[in-house]
Design a protein around this nucleic acid. Sequence first.
DNA 1: ATACAGATCGGT
DNA 2: CCGATCTGTATA
Length: 212
Amino acid sequence: MQKLDRNFYKCSALELAKALLGYHLVHIDDNTVLAGKIVETEAYMGIDDKAAHSYNNRRTRRTETMFGPPGHAYVYLIYGMYYCMNIVAADIGIPQAVLIRALEPVEGMDRMAELRYGKDLSRCSKKEILGLTNGPGKLCRAMNITGADNGEDLCGNRLFLLKGTAPPESDIVITTRVNIDYAEEAINYPYRFYINSSPYVSVRDKSLQDKA
DNA sequence: ATACAGATCGGT
DNA sequence: CCGATCTGTATA
């Protein structure tokens, strides 16, 4: 599989969020390869998007990475305990990003279990294995992605993405974003994408719950 | 200097 | 549903 180059990220967060489904996120962590297939994303469209940290051009120490060049990691701490990883999209001065919400483990699962639960993979229940990377905070813990990775260039050798296989359209669900109750009209924007057949999706669309 | 809410998670 | 836990951000 091929590493994505800068130009791939140079598009709107909406385009990027959908395009990243099925692709792989890789972290070379202290000589251990940690990798997962992206199965859920959310687009944050910047200055006009009330759910975005960069809404209304809010430019602070925290949001600075999003104003920089595309293809970098925007990692922030939420609720004082969890990190969330985003991929900066668009272009310099256009603060858009894609939140990675869920992965399917591909490589380094044993190390992920250690990082998430502090125990051996062989002692994890099925539920714990599904819980390894099925949420934005969880996957950062499993991939050992922290505030130290904020601003990391995804065109480098430490943290990067590989082109994967895009899922068929029929397997992609497009729906609203999670936990942005404060965002007024933006609550209803269809900015979340996930692979319906993946067991690692964090939250499923309610209106689609019961499909055979 | 102080107040407050949050792109989450895990346990009730 | 609630609490953990702390930083970023806004207000004074």
